[in-house]
Design a protein around this nucleic acid. Structure first.
Length: 266
DNA sequence: ATGGTGGTTCTACCA
């Protein structure tokens, strides 16, 4: 079994003790991180290597930042989403581990709706769509995990009326997310879980965690070849209840191992 | 209730 987790940590500097204790308790093969809010040279590599993890990091001062932590060798690292040379935001990193192409994705938030930020979100989704189209041509297993800043359906939030004007919930955003899935990707969490109100994010404001007013915006999207390896995908809500918690909690994916003869194809 | 909370950085911006 290969365990891959994704977690928007809202500053790896502020969250380091929480992330280290979670790795010690859960020991995933791979952890995809978003919102590092720091540069590559300030990323705490030593602390992670003490637990057996190496890191591929795409950082940025103060905002964004994504990384791939792995117990296994990280190969063929690519940073940045293709399609816009002027985009300097650190929101995408991709690599191969144990025969699986994995990516850590931090999709733009897009609020407020009607601003340039909303257009940037939609354009970023178009670029992700194009990139996934090219990834699919390889016909190999890939798992793209991260904070997509998309609430896919009404059942993925506490109160649709409260979210209807938000960039995470707008029809334009959700339509583009569905269009991604319609390329042939699988929302891993929904394969074995049809329940409403399954959340990965609860804001810091207004006691959202205490009243379970959350949203499901962190996702694993799987290629057909990866979906065939799916064993389980579930949310670990424990970290959100701790002191000094991130506003997101980890989403965990378990895949059966890729057969050895197929491993070098990527 | 046009607030609320938290992170980065230092004055607003972002989520």
């Amino acid at each position: 079994m290969l365990t891959i987790a994704t977690w928007n940590v809202n500053s790896i500097t502020a969250r380091l003790p929480r992330v280290l204790e979670w790795l010690e308790e859960n020991s995933p093969d791979i952890l995809l991180l978003q919102e590092l809010k720091t540069t590559e040279d300030k990323f705490p590599r030593l602390e992670f290597s003490a637990l057996g993890y190496t890191a591929a990091v795409f950082g940025q001062k103060a905002w964004n930042g994504v990384a791939i932590l792995s117990k296994h060798k990280i190969k063929n690292i690519k940073t940045g989403l293709p399609g816009d040379a002027s985009d300097e935001q650190a929101r995408y990193i991709e690599a191969t581990v144990e025969g699986i192409r994995v990516a850590s994705v931090y999709l733009p938030n897009g609020n407020p709706v009607g601003s340039e930020k909303f257009n940037i979100k939609l354009k970023w989704m178009d670029r992700l769509h194009n990139h996934i189209q090219s990834l699919l041509k390889i016909e190999q297993p890939f798992a793209l995990g991260g904070d997509y800043n998309i609430i896919p359906e009404d059942r993925d939030c506490h109160d649709p009326q409260l979210w209807k004007g938000d960039a995470l919930f707008r029809p334009e955003s959700r339509q583009k997310f569905r269009t991604l899935l319609n390329l042939g990707l699988t929302d891993a969490f929904r394969v074995n879980n049809d329940e409403a109100h399954q959340y990965t994010f609860w804001g810091y404001q207004g006691g959202a965690w205490q009243s379970n007013s959350g949203i499901r915006i962190d996702h694993f999207l799987l290629s057909p070849q990866a979906a065939d390896l799916l064993y389980d995908c579930f949310i670990d809500t424990v970290p959100r209840g701790k002191d000094k918690a991130s506003d997101h909690t980890p989403l965990i994916l378990k895949l059966r191992k890729v057969q050895k003869f197929a491993i070098n194809a990527l």
